[in-house]
């Protein structure tokens, strides 16, 4: 339920803004000159705001498409991300957004058309070279679909760009928008997972592992390509048993031909973000683990990280060909 809508005065008349005003007639509407006046000030509590985030409607005037770190792709040579939305419905304790953003309010950039122009331009510039566009870096791509209409708008758009791939990364089971349309050949619906015991401790407000598997299976059976994102890998007791069980559940739920890729990434976070989140949740077990600072990130001690990734690789390679397995190396923060 949205109780407060902040909106940039410059986009008050945008059709998408007006649609929000119609859908939430009881919400208090507060004008602002620029979304950063509301979103950016220091001295806000992400933790408190997460209880009841407001919606900020804004226009993204800056660069809309950004290159992703070199090791974060899933097979493409040209990889970009874009963020139509900042912040997430869910409240995963390992999520870097809590440390990166000063506010937990949702910022929705209503000018989808400008994002699409920039994607189209990139597509045209790259010619025959396939390019990838990742939509779930600063938000969950589907969790707020009923609010944003993102997939409903971008799937038909990408259908016209067969050489450009869209990754819809999510933990949501709100996949009706995908079920109602023909599968997009150049899209991957990428579900993120941790073992159920970890999910229950750290992934607050996220649907259970079982219900996500069910949603994923349904989409796979409808012909959608599925990605599995085991990222972040979380060190825990009974690590091998828990991850082995998870992989078994995931792989057996999917028809082999629908599995596009699996990517692995160890828990890591830029040091500054980590310190901020640690202040929000000082008694969180995750932040008291066997961690160390390396290359500007906080991550598991090298020997643990190596061992955990290696275990996951071995477990997965007993189910899938190595061509489908990708490893996200931490990015050095300078």
């Amino acid at each position: 339920m949205i109780e407060y809508i902040y909106f940039e005065v410059g986009i008050e008349d945008h059709p998408r803004t007006q649609e929000f005003f119609r859908r939430f007639p009881k919400a208090t509407k507060i004008p602002c000159n620029h979304y950063k006046e509301v979103f950016n000030p220091r001295g806000q509590s992400f933790r408190l705001q997460k209880k009841n985030p407001a919606l900020i409607l804004a226009k993204q005037n800056g660069k809309k498409i950004h290159p992703i770190p070199a090791s974060y792709g899933v097979g493409g040579s040209q990889n970009f991300y874009f963020s139509h939305l900042l912040n997430c419905l869910y409240d995963c304790r390992y999520c870097f957004l809590q440390g990166m953003f000063p506010s937990a309010h949702y910022v929705l950039f209503v000018n989808f058309e400008d994002f699409q122009s920039e994607i189209k331009k990139k597509h045209d510039d790259l010619g025959d070279s396939p390019s990838w566009f990742f939509s779930g870096y600063d938000c969950d791509s589907l969790a707020l679909e009923s609010l944003t209409g993102f997939a409903q708008d971008f799937i038909p758009f990408f259908r016209k760009l067969p050489n450009s791939w869209l990754e819809i990364r999510t933990k949501s089971i709100a996949s009706q928008v995908l079920e109602k349309t023909d599968p997009l050949d150049n899209a991957v619906v990428a579900f993120s997972f941790t073992p159920e015991e970890i999910s229950q401790q750290l992934e607050h407000k996220v649907p259970s592992v079982q219900s996500r598997i069910k949603a994923m299976k349904k989409l796979a059976n409808l012909g959608w390509k599925i990605g599995l994102r085991i990222d972040p890998i979380i060190d825990c007791v009974d690590f091998n048993t828990r991850y082995a069980k998870l992989f078994e559940q995931l792989i057996t739920a999917l028809p082999a031909e629908s599995l596009h890729s699996v990517s692995l990434g160890a828990f890591r976070m830029p040091t500054g973000f980590f310190r901020s989140i640690q202040k929000l949740y000082p008694k969180e077990q995750l932040f008291s683990g066997k961690l160390e600072k390396k290359n500007g990130n906080i991550a598991y001690r090298a020997e643990i990280e190596k061992e955990r990734i290696s275990t996951c690789q071995s477990l997965l390679l007993s189910h899938i060909p190595k061509e489908k397995l990708y490893l996200c190396d931490p990015v050095e923060i300078k």
Partner: peptide, 16 residues
């Protein structure tokens, strides 16, 4: 310009 985040559920009227 300040936008005090409104987290308290209350019937109090909001105003600039």
């Amino acid at each position: 310009i300040y936008y005090p985040p409104q987290l308290v559920d209350s019937e109090i009227i909001r105003s600039p």
